[in-house]
Design a protein around this nucleic acid. Structure first.
Length: 558
RNA sequence: GCGCCCGUAGCUCAGCUGGAUAGAGCAAUGGACUUCUAAUCCAUCGGUCGCAGGUUCGAAUCCUGCCGGGCGCGCCA
């Protein structure tokens, strides 16, 4: 008997609908029957293992009352293999109970494919560029951009699991006025002066000055222009190194570190502007060159070359986007903090001005702000950075696993307050420990089984033995995993994976509480022991894979 | 003034892109370890889903208008 996943159940229902239509039992036209129907897991256990609302959806077209259509469909489904009971409830829901044997097969199916379980080819052939964090090299990574570090990385991992060809990219804004302010700030501190207006402050500035002076003692005797240049070059280099180190510590490995300066040096900016001009998407006015962004949905037209002849900030973004597309990416995703959401309109307009399709070739994801809370008080100032809270602050307070998990656990649409005391705690209050503990427990059972010389059921596996309600719950949870990964990829929402793992951890702990896996003392091992061991094996695989996709370690012991 | 995000239990947040009696953790109270990790489990308590309309078989979810909070609205980057 094949295993029953929600997708397979959906297919079974579609087949049943087609059978009814072909027989003329329902008057639904060929194309009206969907390729897939919604199969849900009812919250109420009395509503079976799975439920579908398809009778409610199709009743109007079929010219039948929902319950009558449900009745016809239920009769059609009843004879099907793997389905043990079909009931109609409420306005026309069809509640399905799956045969234990078919459900038990899920354990075998998971173990057979191992860590590949849940992957698919739905993004096969798609080349995706993910740009995230992209914190300026004028200071440590702040939490606005830092929130995207684990989220973007996790998305990359899931896209890859869906067959996509993914590039993680970090954009260094190492050109322009802010870098000037940065080097001016370094110089001022070196000379014992107050930093300039809009300058950068914080102990990290002093650190950099000390390092630059130590490496280049002569800098203190240079004229300001020369000294500023040394501070600029060396200071930015030190910030690059520090940012990369933070990311490495955080287990976020970028494939490309892209420097804004290179777009200006290579002439890419001019080429992009020329391209837009050829497409009649620019015009000159008031001494500046403008992009016709309003025509493509932006609030207003935007200056791309200022009246002083210097390119505006957006000009590099034009060139950068074009560069990504020319490198062959079908989809360009840019992840920004909420403080940059005002930029979305012009980015989308830019995309369209190049002849591309917004939301298809370019997506901009906005992450709301992250606050840190300690002792019930919002952490406002960083020792390091003076005016912002940094990713390093979070990592130092709670560790890499908890920091990654805490940032990836919530919808990016919500601003969040992270309680540092909670996330630093090694207890069940802390969701990351709760999930990791489930994995450690599973690993422990498998370890003990090995010591007992007991192996999971193999060819002789009898899936119908896994008939305990807790086993059914756990099997259905495992069957959800592919759907969860698909939702994460489609919606670009990795927090769904974290929530799934938490719910599945709870399901597993409940199973563990009442279903003894290994034989007691000198008891002989039965087929049930070995079947449950297979289920444990499958569950551990899902936790290991899920945690890996979140970039969080899956400990063997805790 | 305009735009984006949020508003769900005392607190922190989910809610499978419209489904059935709205969920979890924490906090509070009371239980469960001679057996695979108690970093666990069970029970109880806790709600006008910000407010008001609308759409339909059905709305926390979609639409409109208010209220409240966050963040933005530059020839800065």
């Amino acid at each position: 008997m094949p295993s029953v996943t929600p997708d397979q159940l959906s297919q079974t229902i579609v087949d049943a609908l087609n059978a009814l239509a072909n027989r003329g039992s329902i008057a639904v036209s060929e194309g009206a029957i969907p390729a897939a129907v919604k199969v849900e897991r009812p919250k109420n256990k009395e509503h079976g293992d799975y439920a579908t609302n398809v009778a409610l959806q199709l009743s109007k077209q079929a010219g039948l009352k929902p319950r009558d259509l449900a009745e016809l469909l239920a009769q059609e489904l009843k004879g099907r293999e793997a389905i043990s009971a079909v009931d109609i409830a409420g306005p026309g829901f069809i509640n399905i109970t799956v045969a234990a044997a078919a459900q038990g097969e899920i354990a075998r199916a998971v173990v057979e494919v191992g860590s590949a379980y849940g992957t698919s080819d739905r993004f096969a052939g798609k080349r995706i560029n993910l740009e995230f964090v992209s914190s300026n090299p004028t200071g440590p990574i702040h939490l606005g951009g830092g929130r995207w570090a684990p989220v973007g990385d996790s998305l990359a991992r899931v896209f890859t699991a869906m067959g996509a060809d993914v590039t993680r990219e970090y954009y260094f804004n190492d050109h322009g006025a802010q870098i000037d302010r940065f080097s001016a700030s370094l110089l001022a501190v070196a000379k014992g002066e107050d930093p300039p207006e809009d300058g950068y402050v914080g102990s990290y500035i002093t650190d950099i000055v000390e390092q630059v002076v130590a490496a280049h003692p002569s800098v203190v005797d240079m004229p300001d222009d020369q000294a500023r240049e040394v501070f600029r070059r060396e200071g930015v280099e030190l910030m690059f190194a520090e940012i990369k180190q933070t990311l490495r510590t955080f287990r976020v490995d970028f494939d490309v570190y892209f420097h804004e300066q290179s777009l200006h040096d290579s002439g890419a900016v001019e080429r992009a502007i020329q391209r837009l001009t050829e497409m009649d998407n620019t015009y000159e006015a008031e001494g500046a060159l403008w992009l016709r962004s309003e025509k493509y949905g932006d609030d207003k037209d935007r200056v791309i070359v200022k009246s002083d002849g210097h390119p505006a900030y957006i000009s590099a973004d034009l060139a950068y986007y074009l560069d990504k597309r020319e490198r062959g990416f079908d989809l360009v995703v840019i992840m920004l903090g909420a403080d940059h959401h005002g930029y979305v309109g012009r980015l989308m307009a830019m995309c369209q001005a190049f002849g591309d399709t917004p939301h298809e070739n370019l997506e901009v994801l906005i992450g709301q702000l992250v606050n840190l809370v300690r002792d019930g008080q919002q952490v406002r100032m960083s020792k390091r950075a003076g005016n912002v809270v940094t990713l390093d602050d979070l990592i130092e307070s709670v560790g890499v696993d908890a920091a990654r998990y805490a940032l990836v656990r919530y919808s990016s649409d919500s601003s969040i307050d992270l309680d540092l005391d909670l996330w630093a705690r090694a207890s069940s209050d802390n969701p990351v420990y709760y999930v990791q503990y489930a994995h450690a427990r599973l690993a422990s059972i498998l370890r003990n089984a090995t010591e007992l010389g007991l192996a999971p059921a193999g060819q002789d596996f009898d899936p119908s033995l896994l008939s305990h309600p807790r086993e059914g719950d756990l099997l259905r949870a495992l069957a959800e995993f592919p759907r969860v990964l698909a939702a994460v990829a489609e919606l670009r929402e990795p927090h769904r994976l974290a929530r799934y793992l938490e719910a599945t951890a709870a399901t597993f702990h409940r199973f563990y509480d009442v279903c003894r896996v290994l034989p007691h003392g000198d008891e002989d091992a039965t087929d049930l022991h070995r079947a449950r061991l297979l289920l444990v094996d499958a569950t551990r695989i899902v936790f290991a894979r899920g945690l890996q996709l979140l970039g969080v370690t899956a400990p063997e012991r805790m």
